[in-house]
């Protein structure tokens, strides 16, 4: 949090101190408007009166004064909000290993469903493109702010077949992204690169352009299943994906089942393209302070006194 005029915070402090002294004076002075009682010591023990209502009222009053005083100083809050100029390219693995059924119904189908969720969760206005890759990378949807078009493009994802060219996919994604703005690449794969350029090199290149690479590892290592039509065990190369994410300045998430994959991509959809923004909080501060002051005064009157 920052302030436009931090010096005015002193006013808030002085107001709180003044209120505090005023309350002490009011509570300490002998008032004619008191009721006589035979023995206060007995009453104290007899009613076991709680002290918190008074403290809450005083605390609320001081807080409201502090909020109102702080509003004068022009507070600004820094928040991460979805970037309006955000662009993200989703790279989906369509290699033969994606036919594995360790993630139901298949890795490829689960990835497709999760991609749908990812696109749906993206903030409005964020441009999205879709790249698929197996032996080679293929652009099936150029960057577009039309999320429905991107969702429709998911239907054009080819059937899983061939090798895994992660590096080519990242390179194609890099070509699609603009030179400026908030950009990101999201890679959904089982991670065993066996064709094309070295993905690590491309990820490092992307990092120099301030484009983070988020990797989602789909599949399991200990399912005991084979890739259909081969004698290879269905595994994922987590180390490679983690290295890619580290090199690209992003993050790696493992999804062992369809639900995990869906939630991981949904989370990324909400948070991938974020920018820091300063929000003017003077009005909310003033409103909150005023509201709290009114509640305190009415509460105090309802309870028999203004604190």
């Amino acid at each position: 949090m920052s302030f436009t005029n931090p010096a005015l915070l002193l006013v808030a402090v002085l107001l709180c101190l003044a209120c505090s002294f005023l309350l002490r004076w009011v509570q300490g002075r002998k008032s004619a408007q008191t009721l006589a009682y035979t023995n206060l010591a007995f009453l104290d023990a007899a009613v076991a009166a709680p002290v918190w209502p008074g403290r809450v009222l005083v605390g609320a009053l001081l807080l409201s004064v502090a909020l109102l005083g702080s509003a004068l100083a022009g507070p600004h809050l820094t928040a991460r909000v979805p970037a309006k100029d955000g662009s993200v390219v989703l790279c989906i693995d369509t290699s033969g290993s994606m036919t594995s059924q360790d993630v139901a119904p298949t890795r490829a189908e689960a990835a497709k469903a999760a991609a749908r969720t990812f696109i749906s969760e993206l903030p409005a206005g964020t441009k999205v493109g879709v790249v698929t890759f197996s032996t080679a990378a293929q652009l099936i949807q150029p960057l577009t702010p039309d999320h429905q078009a991107a969702l429709d493009a998911l239907a054009r994802i080819p059937e899983p077949n061939g090798a895994t060219a992660i590096g080519d996919a990242l390179a194609l994604a890099a070509q699609q992204l603009p030179n400026t703005g908030h950009r990101a690449v999201v890679l959904v794969t089982d991670g065993v690169n066996n064709n094309g350029v070295d993905p690590l090199e491309v990820a490092k290149f992307l990092a120099t352009k301030h484009v983070p690479v988020y990797t989602i590892g789909i599949g399991t290592n200990d399912s005991g299943q084979l890739i259909p039509g081969t004698n290879e065990a269905a595994t994922i190369d987590e180390d490679a994906l983690r290295a890619l994410a580290d090199a690209g300045g992003g993050a790696y998430v493992k999804a062992a089942d369809a639900q995990q994959l869906k939630s991981a991509l949904a989370q990324l959809g909400r948070t991938t393209i974020l920018e820091k923004k300063k929000i003017d909080a003077a009005m909310p501060f003033a409103f909150a302070g005023g509201l709290l002051l009114i509640i305190t005064l009415f509460g105090g009157m309802a309870m028999g006194r203004i604190p």
Partner: peptide
């Protein structure tokens, strides 16, 4: 509610 009392 809040009352101010004086010991007689």
């Amino acid at each position: 509610g809040f009352v101010r009392l004086q010991d007689a």
